[in-house]
């Protein structure tokens, strides 16, 4: 499991994580709310491309990310083409693509640890409502460390099942759920033993 982060020293890399994420959220939302006009979509695509090339990870990453979106964009385009015709289909697909490309820039230029730290700071005002930012951080980090463990457990369950000639999805789902729940019990005990109350 690797994050989308690409190391670099571009202007976008140097922006602090919190303000960058918020700023991009606003820009991306604005792009998503653009009217269905081809001029608007072309402008959005131009802004996205220019940000990649001049402020971010560059043309090559722009091409790679666009290629990565090919299936989503194709599905959107095909659905539109059937129901609304060529021009709206192209316009709407371009707008969706531009919004996704812009949003991806945050992940490409920011480490997940920096974003998590920014999130913990961002949660501080919620203290009044009883939210504990440190506990929230613990929860997020626990999920990230648990994903590889559960991935391994899932493979083990499947291999054990295969060794006995079993193939059923139902048996797998049942066994994997019980294994995951047992892991949760152990995890809870381990956290308690380390002084997390």
């Amino acid at each position: 499991m690797t994050a989308l982060y690409r190391p670099g020293r571009t202007p976008l890399h140097r922006l602090p994580a919190g303000p960058k994420a918020l700023g991009f959220a606003v820009v991306v939302l604005a792009v998503s709310l653009l009217p269905t006009r081809w001029e608007a979509s072309v402008a959005a695509l131009a802004v996205a491309a220019a940000t990649y090339v001049f402020l971010g990870p560059g043309l090559r990453e722009l091409v790679a990310q666009t290629y990565g979106l090919r299936w989503i964009l194709l599905i959107v385009f095909a659905g539109q083409l059937i129901f609304s015709g060529l021009m709206p289909a192209a316009t709407n697909t371009a707008r969706v693509g531009a919004a996704i490309l812009l949003a991806t820039l945050v992940m490409l230029t920011t480490r997940v640890t920096d974003l998590l730290a920014a999130l913990e700071r961002g949660l501080q005002p919620l203290r009044r409502l009883g939210v504990d930012p440190q506990r929230a951080s613990l929860l997020f980090c626990t999920v990230l460390t648990t994903v590889p463990v559960l991935g391994r457990l899932a493979l083990e369950v499947r291999e054990a099942q295969r060794a006995r000639g079993g193939r059923g999805v139902r048996i797998f789902a049942m066994t994997f759920t019980v294994v995951a729940l047992k892991h949760a019990d152990q995890l809870g005990e381990a956290l308690a033993a380390r002084g997390v109350d």
Partner: peptide, 24 residues
């Protein structure tokens, strides 16, 4: 309106289920 504190064993279950959905 206060959010009740998340007990440690619940925290573990919440985390494990989030991870389980990711693994699926």
């Amino acid at each position: 309106m206060a959010v009740p504190r998340l007990a440690t064993n619940d925290l573990a279950r919440v985390a494990v289920f989030a991870a389980l959905i990711a693994v699926l």
